[in-house]
Amino acid sequence: MKRLLKSKMAAGGGIIVILILIACVLAPWVAPYSVKDFTDDLLARPSATHLFGTDSFGRDALSLVLHSGLETLSMSLLTLVISAFLGIVCGVVSGYVGGWTDRILSMVMQGIMSFPSMMVALLVMGIFGTIGRASLIGAISVTLIPRFSMILRGATIPARDAEYVTAAQALGVSRWRLLWRHVVPNLVTPMIVVCSTYLPSIILLEASLSFLGFGAPPDAPTWGRIVSEGGKYFRIAPWLVLFPGSVIAVTVIGFNLLGEGIRDVVDPRVRGKLTARSVR
């Protein structure tokens, strides 16, 4: 933790992330207007009363950005938690049970991973048919589960064969309990690192999906949806793209910096390590 604080990058990223988090969580109190206020002041320029201008419904764009920030971040976090959980389950089962279960699971996971996330998410969204929070989380999770699963599988296999596990087993401790006690805790830090790098990509992926009409619904917008709605007015009200777009960019930068900082601290070798990897 101390090292984390020392890293300039992580500290910078951390400050950005915390500020944005606070602003979004406190949205109902800090937002100057309610998003339920449809005024007749449509597409107003940024001014003292409306810092980010108003959107095509006459809503205050700043308030909208704050409110949807909560939506965006909670959606992204929930996606991470769900996909991490399912990824852990798949990975541990795959690595621990082995055999055909492992082979088939790995094949499916690798199949999904070798396909662009964007296209997998589109496919899943298309399959769900409804465009809402649940399907969005589902779609993005499908792209992330294999990534978590592969990491966990790789970590489980050596642990399965480790001596202390065999010894404990001989003492009659349940294998699953052992796994839970000894393998999973060791994975907490790498998981945090991975999550911190996936969070910004979830936000960006959602933005692209929104642009294609497969993202968050307009009645509960995310930042991505707001920017893509604003895109329709890019030439008459560019602030509807530029302000929320910058918010996305700043948030993504913040998370990236924080993620890199954490990675440096956790495993200084990872960063910039030159690996003359041999091809298998």
């Binding site: 419904f57 465009i131 619904p217 307009p218 009645d219």
Partner: peptide, 20 residues
Amino acid sequence: LELGHYWEQIGIEVDFEVIE
């Protein structure tokens, strides 16, 4: 969204759902 907004003002809770 516009209709829903008006209906909310007469005390109706609008549950929006977007369909592909």
